[in-house]
């Protein structure tokens, strides 16, 4: 059940990163893992990802910076769907994340199944748009 959707996981906690990666890979996604802000920025400049799963508290650039970089740059990552996964749960943080470009916000601890549903939904939506654009 392989699909062509590419997901980047930007999360400094290796266990959480591998938790998400394991489940996405099992669902057939192609997954890239980076563990700090600078590495993420570099990766986003060099390749296009359909979906980015971003933690907020990161070493180097934080998740907000990554969001705004994804949405405001000329690099290939523009159009990437941004899912924020963070232990920060205050309304201010959520609002700020949306302003900076997050499309969707998951508070830790999250349910893997629901995160996977969200990713699948985004993939389906993006595929539909792709088909419409092709027509």
């Amino acid at each position: 059940m392989k699909n062509s959707t590419k997901v980047i996981i930007i999360e400094d906690d290796k266990d959480i990163s591998s938790l998400i990666a394991y489940n996405l890979r099992k669902a057939g996604y192609s997954v890239e893992q980076v563990f700090d802000g600078y590495a993420a920025a570099k990766e986003l400049r060099s390749a296009y990802f359909n979906i980015a799963i971003v933690d907020i508290m990161l070493p180097g650039l934080n998740g907000f910076d990554i969001c705004s970089q994804i949405k405001n740059s000329d690099n290939p990552s523009r159009g990437t769907f941004v899912i924020v996964v963070s232990a920060k749960t205050s309304p201010q943080d959520k609002l700020y994340a949306h302003i900076m470009g997050a499309d969707c916000y998951f508070a830790k601890p999250f349910s893997v199944a629901i995160l996977l549903d969200a990713v699948n939904e985004v993939r389906d939506m993006q595929n539909r748009e792709f088909i419409i654009n092709q027509k």
Partner: peptide, 11 residues
């Protein structure tokens, strides 16, 4: 607290 909880719950 949430970081280890996330891992435990997720795994």
């Amino acid at each position: 607290l949430k970081t280890p909880l996330t891992s435990i719950k997720g795994f």
